[in-house]
Simulated assay, not measured.
Amino acid sequence: MKHTILFLLVSLLAVSCGKQIGQKDGVVIVKVGDNTLTKERLEAEMPPSLSAEDSLIYAEKIIRSWIGDILMYDLASQNMSNKQEVENLLEEYRKSLVVYQYQAHLINEKLSKEINEEEMLRYFEANEDRFKLDQVLVTGLFLKIPIDAPQVSSVREWYKSSAPAALEKIEKYSIQNAVVYEYFYDNWVDYNEIADNLPFYDNTKKVSRNMHIELKDSDFHYFVNIKDCLQIGDNAPYDYAKASIKEIIINQRKKDFLKNVEDDLYQTALGNGQIIFKDK
């Protein structure tokens, strides 16, 4: 079987050179009953940039898998005892798929996804308790410099301050010396993203406001200034919850839109006599 497939593939490369790809029937590679696998379909499933040898190996796997699927389907169809049940399930699935595709088309065509800041802020203020943190958030600064960097004693003073003068000194210093300089005094970040960059640090240690962390290993100094923090279970800040709020509002719009479409369809069908309730 393996040699047969390889022979087919090698022969195909030579025979199909003069045949236009994309013509009606395509170049048939293998046929099982009434089912055919074409060169065009095989090429569509092949990953790009394979060597000639790897292409033959990968193509053989696709062909064997395709043949196996056809044979197993034929065997199952011939020996299935609950054919009507399967047909009913397929019909229900077909209906659901058609409805889903049409609803998606309606939503993309007619439902606006533009949500203004005011609407999101109103939702947040009315539902603030719904947005609880499942991770610690912090604001502050993270600095990583080589172990032999100059002015380390000065950096120890600067990083602890959020005063503009100290921050300006750190920024100028970092251009020449820092491996990592992250400024996040004005936005909340997941503390784990910072802690993961620290050596020998206990991530379970409680984080608090105005907390200073200084560590070093054989290669680097690490400085972290935690200006503010929010703990697990606290209400999430608006900026952090914003993406979730937008998704919630869009999903609610979708539900309301589809409910209105269904109601309109029902009332129209009822009015034109398409729906008839039979008396018992």
Score class of each variant (00 low, 15 high):
residue 206 K to M: 05
residue 193 E to M: 05
residue 182 E to T: 08
residue 111 L to C: 09
residue 81 S to A: 07
residue 52 A to Q: 14
residue 42 L to E: 06
residue 151 Q to I: 00
residue 53 E to Y: 00
residue 196 D to Y: 03
residue 74 D to N: 14
residue 136 V to H: 12
residue 279 D to Y: 10
residue 69 D to M: 11
residue 238 Y to G: 04
residue 221 H to Q: 08
residue 153 S to D: 15
residue 115 I to S: 14
residue 277 F to I: 14
residue 153 S to M: 09
residue 8 L to Q: 07
residue 169 K to S: 15
residue 272 N to T: 03
residue 61 K to T: 12
residue 69 D to R: 11
residue 100 Y to T: 02
residue 177 N to L: 07
residue 197 N to V: 00
residue 106 L to G: 06
residue 182 E to P: 05
residue 90 L to K: 13
residue 22 G to T: 00
residue 266 Y to G: 11
residue 183 Y to M: 11
residue 38 T to C: 01
residue 87 E to Y: 08
residue 102 Y to A: 00
residue 197 N to T: 04
residue 53 E to K: 07
residue 252 Q to P: 06
residue 229 C to G: 02
residue 122 R to M: 05
residue 162 S to K: 15
residue 101 Q to V: 03
residue 149 A to H: 13
residue 67 I to E: 11
residue 228 D to R: 05
residue 42 L to P: 06
residue 39 K to D: 06
residue 234 D to T: 00
residue 44 A to N: 08
residue 7 F to W: 12
residue 121 L to T: 04
residue 90 L to Q: 12
residue 19 K to V: 13
residue 181 Y to E: 03
residue 142 F to R: 15
residue 247 E to A: 12
residue 234 D to A: 02
residue 119 E to Q: 14
residue 78 Q to V: 01
residue 163 A to Q: 14
residue 88 N to H: 13
residue 58 Y to C: 04
residue 189 V to W: 02
residue 64 R to W: 02
residue 232 I to D: 07
residue 76 A to R: 14
residue 169 K to V: 03
residue 102 Y to T: 00
residue 19 K to I: 06
residue 186 D to P: 07
residue 49 S to Y: 06
residue 92 E to I: 05
residue 99 V to T: 10
residue 267 Q to F: 04
residue 28 V to K: 04
residue 237 P to C: 01
residue 78 Q to L: 03
residue 241 A to E: 01
residue 114 E to S: 12
residue 8 L to Y: 08
residue 193 E to P: 04
residue 182 E to H: 11
residue 164 P to S: 15
residue 135 Q to A: 13
residue 233 G to H: 02
residue 104 A to Y: 05
residue 27 V to Y: 05
residue 191 Y to A: 13
residue 98 V to F: 11
residue 17 C to Y: 09
residue 148 D to P: 10
residue 64 R to G: 13
residue 232 I to R: 05
residue 76 A to N: 15
residue 106 L to Y: 13
residue 116 N to E: 06
residue 21 I to H: 10
residue 81 S to Y: 07
residue 93 Y to S: 12
residue 137 L to R: 01
residue 213 I to L: 04
residue 77 S to H: 11
residue 159 Y to C: 07
residue 114 E to M: 13
residue 12 L to Q: 11
residue 116 N to F: 01
residue 86 V to T: 01
residue 48 P to V: 03
residue 276 I to L: 10
residue 183 Y to P: 07
residue 67 I to V: 12
residue 158 W to K: 10
residue 2 K to T: 12
residue 18 G to H: 08
residue 194 I to E: 03
residue 35 N to C: 09
residue 86 V to D: 10
residue 221 H to K: 08
residue 160 K to S: 14
residue 173 Y to W: 13
residue 96 S to R: 10
residue 84 Q to L: 11
residue 210 N to A: 02
residue 19 K to M: 10
residue 55 S to W: 14
residue 86 V to G: 06
residue 62 I to S: 14
residue 242 K to L: 00
residue 228 D to H: 03
